[in-house]
Computed example of a mutant assay.
Amino acid sequence: MTKTLVAVAAGLSRPSSTRLLADRLAGAVQQHTGDPDTRVQVIELRELANEIAQNMVTGFPGPRLRDAVEAVTSADGLIAVTPVFTGSYSGLFKSFFDIVDKDALAGTPVLIAATGGTARHSLVLEHAMRPLFSYLRSVVVPTAVYAASEDWGTGGDDALAGRVDRAARELASLVDARPAHPDVPDVDVPVVPFAQQLAALAVGQE
C-alpha cells in the first residue's frame, strides 16, 4: 500500500524560504524511503489563512481547510516547517495545528523545521516546536532542521544539506516501518443547519 508524506509550510511570502525548505525536505525523504511510489503533498498555510481564521471564530472548517486537516491526520509521515516570528512559530502555524484534533497525530512520525533571518533563533525548534508535537503525541525525529538566511548561500548550503539528509533519513526510516493507513471510502455525513442546531439547543434548555 502506497505511503503518503505531507509537508506543511507556514511561510507568508512568495517566493518563500519556508516553502523551499519544505520542498527540499520532502524530496529528500521521498528519496530515502523504501517505496519509490511514496506520495508527497505540500500544504501552504498561506493559501488557507482566511479559512483558518473563520474556523477559529465559527468552529466550522471550509472545504479546503477540511481537506488539508484530513491530509495531515491521515499521512504516514509529516514535515512541519514554520518561519520564526518573535522567537517562536508563527501564529498561522499554531492556529492550524490548534484546529487538528489533539489525538489525531498520535504516533505519526514528524520532522520539524524552521526558517529565520539569523541562526540565533534556531532554538525555537527545541523550546517551541518539539514540545508542541510531543503534546500531540507524535514521534518527532531526533534531527530538527533550521535554515537561516546565510544557509542558502554557497558557504552554508553544504551544512544545510547535511542536516536535511540526516533528518530525511530518520523520518524515512520511521515512515517505512509504519503500517500504511488503509484507504477509507468517502462517507456522506449529513450536515445539520446551524439554525436547527440552535433550535434543538433551546428546546433542551427549557
Score class of each variant (00 low, 15 high):
93 F>E: 01
94 K>I: 00
126 E>W: 05
56 M>Y: 01
27 G>M: 01
89 Y>P: 03
116 G>H: 05
87 G>D: 03
194 F>K: 14
128 A>T: 13
106 A>L: 08
15 P>S: 08
149 S>T: 14
162 G>N: 10
12 L>G: 10
53 A>E: 12
73 T>G: 04
49 A>K: 15
39 R>L: 10
58 T>C: 01
182 P>A: 08
137 R>D: 08
185 P>D: 06
47 E>H: 08
101 D>M: 12
130 R>V: 08
184 V>L: 14
29 V>P: 06
12 L>Q: 01
10 A>M: 02
19 R>Q: 09
157 D>T: 15
77 G>N: 03
55 N>V: 00
73 T>S: 10
14 R>L: 06
41 Q>E: 15
153 G>D: 09
184 V>F: 11
164 V>D: 05
79 I>G: 10
129 M>G: 03
189 V>D: 04
124 V>T: 06
53 A>H: 05
183 D>M: 09
65 L>S: 02
69 V>M: 09
146 Y>V: 03
81 V>Q: 05
48 L>N: 10
46 R>G: 04
169 R>N: 10
153 G>R: 05
198 L>R: 14
112 I>W: 11
174 L>H: 11
111 L>H: 07
43 I>D: 00
201 L>W: 11
39 R>E: 01
15 P>W: 01
5 L>P: 12
127 H>A: 09
187 V>D: 08
126 E>A: 15
77 G>F: 12
183 D>Q: 11
201 L>Q: 15
54 Q>M: 03
41 Q>M: 14
62 G>I: 10
115 T>D: 03
162 G>W: 08
90 S>W: 00
195 A>Q: 13
73 T>V: 14
206 E>Q: 13
183 D>G: 14
135 Y>N: 11
114 A>V: 07
11 G>I: 08
71 A>I: 02
107 G>D: 04
131 P>K: 07
86 T>W: 06
16 S>F: 07
